[in-house]
Computed example of a mutant assay.
Amino acid sequence: MKEFLLLFRADYKSMPKESPEEMQATTQKWMNWFAGIAAQNKFVGGTHLNDSGKVVRNGDVILDGPYAEIKESIMGYTLIKAASLDEATALVKDCPILAFGGNVEIRETPDCGFSEEKNM
C-alpha cells in the first residue's frame, strides 16, 4: 500500500455560517466519512487546521497567514493508504468538503525511509 496526503481546501470567508445543530451534523458527516475509510484499514491520520498562522520566509521575514487574498485555504489534511492514485481518488469522491464548494488535493507521499516505524 502507498500513502497519500489529502489536502482539504475551501474559502473560509464564503463558507456558510452554521447553527450549532448544523455544525454538529456537519461534524458527524466528517466522522462518518473518516470512519468509512478507517473501516477499510486505510486511514493513517490527520486533522483540521485553524484559519490563522504565520508564514516564514528567507531573510527573517514573518507574515501573518494564510494569505487573505488567496481564495482557497488549506483547512486540514489527512493521510490515507491506497493501492494507487485511482483508489485514493475513489475514496475522496464522497468527502464532505465537496458539498460546500471545497476541494481535495491528493498527493502520493514518497517512501523516503524517514517514517517512525523504520527508525525505531
Rank of each mutant, 00 (worst) to 15 (best):
F4E: 01
L5Q: 13
L7W: 03
F8T: 03
R9T: 00
R9C: 02
D11E: 13
Y12P: 07
K13L: 12
K13P: 02
K13I: 05
M15T: 07
K17V: 15
E18R: 15
E18T: 13
E18I: 09
P20W: 13
P20V: 12
E21Y: 11
E21T: 13
M23I: 12
T26M: 12
T27V: 07
T27D: 11
Q28V: 03
K29G: 04
W30E: 04
M31G: 08
M31N: 11
N32D: 15
N32T: 07
W33F: 14
F34E: 09
A35V: 05
A35R: 13
G36W: 03
G36S: 15
G36Q: 12
I37V: 14
Q40R: 15
N41D: 12
K42E: 11
F43L: 15
V44H: 00
V44D: 00
V44A: 04
G45A: 07
H48P: 14
H48Q: 07
L49M: 14
N50I: 02
D51W: 11
S52K: 13
S52F: 14
S52Y: 14
G53N: 11
G53S: 09
K54Q: 11
K54C: 01
V55W: 05
V55C: 11
V55A: 14
V56F: 12
V56M: 10
V56E: 03
N58F: 09
N58P: 05
G59C: 04
V61Q: 08
V61N: 03
V61K: 09
L63S: 11
L63K: 09
G65T: 05
G65C: 08
P66D: 08
Y67F: 15
A68S: 13
E69T: 05
K71H: 08
K71P: 00
E72F: 07
S73G: 15
S73N: 11
I74H: 02
M75F: 03
G76T: 04
G76P: 08
G76V: 05
Y77A: 04
Y77H: 08
T78F: 07
T78N: 06
L79W: 08
I80N: 01
K81C: 04
K81T: 08
K81L: 06
A83Q: 14
A83G: 13
S84I: 10
D86I: 01
D86E: 14
D86S: 09
E87T: 02
E87N: 04
A88Q: 02
A88L: 03
A90F: 00
V92H: 00
V92E: 00
C95K: 01
C95T: 02
I97H: 06
F100C: 03
F100V: 07
G101K: 06
G101L: 09
G101T: 07
N103K: 10
V104L: 06
V104D: 02
E105T: 06
I106G: 00
I106S: 00
I106T: 05
I106F: 00
R107Y: 04
R107E: 02
E108R: 09
T109S: 08
P110W: 12
P110A: 14
P110G: 12
G113A: 10
G113W: 04
F114G: 15
S115C: 10
E116T: 13
K118P: 02
N119H: 11
N119L: 13
N119F: 05
M120H: 06
